[in-house]
């Protein structure tokens, strides 16, 4: 019963997320609304951590395999991608480097600065 209850809570929140997506005209997916709802529920103790923890951690652990179908689906996009493959590849790879560097270094610099001020 423990897992059933936990999975049910997570599914009900997903459902609520789906409902919000349907009524709010903003391109935010059900999963993001759901994540925010669960986070707020945990913070306000409306849902206890133990009530979702085991099922949630299981889902997170197997999350990588959930991307396999989308990755395999790339074979069906080959036709549309092929004509602009070179520029798209360059932009995709370069952006990962610049974004990770910007996010990582800006936050790291500020964390270090804050820590110095505390000391």
């Amino acid at each position: 019963m423990k897992y059933l209850k936990q999975f049910l809570i997570i599914l009900l929140i997903s459902l609520l997320g789906e409902f919000l997506k349907a009524i709010i005209p903003f391109p935010v997916p059900a999963s993001i609304y759901g994540m925010i709802i669960l986070f707020v529920c945990l913070l306000t103790k409306l849902i206890k951590l133990e009530d979702v923890k085991d099922a949630g951690k299981f889902l997170i652990e197997i999350m990588p395999v959930m991307f396999i179908p989308a990755g395999v689906g790339l074979v069906t996009s080959w036709g549309v991608l092929q004509p602009i493959l070179v520029p798209v590849s360059i932009i995709t790879v370069v952006t990962i480097f610049t974004v990770m560097a910007a996010t990582g270094l800006v936050s790291q610099m500020m964390i270090k600065k804050d820590n110095k001020e505390v000391q």
């Binding site: 999975f7 997570i10 599914l11 929140i13 997903s14 997320g17 789906e18 997916p29 059900a30 999963s31 993001i32 759901g34 994540m35 925010i36 709802i37 669960l38 986070f39 945990l42 951590l49 979702v52 923890k53 099922a55 949630g56 951690k57 889902l59 997170i60 197997i62 999350m63 395999v65 959930m66 991307f67 396999i68 179908p69 989308a70």
Partner: peptide
């Protein structure tokens, strides 16, 4: 598998 993505993403709140 794809269907599980929404509940898994919701669980990232944990």
């Amino acid at each position: 598998l794809t269907w599980l993505l929404t509940p898994a993403t919701v669980s990232l709140a944990i």
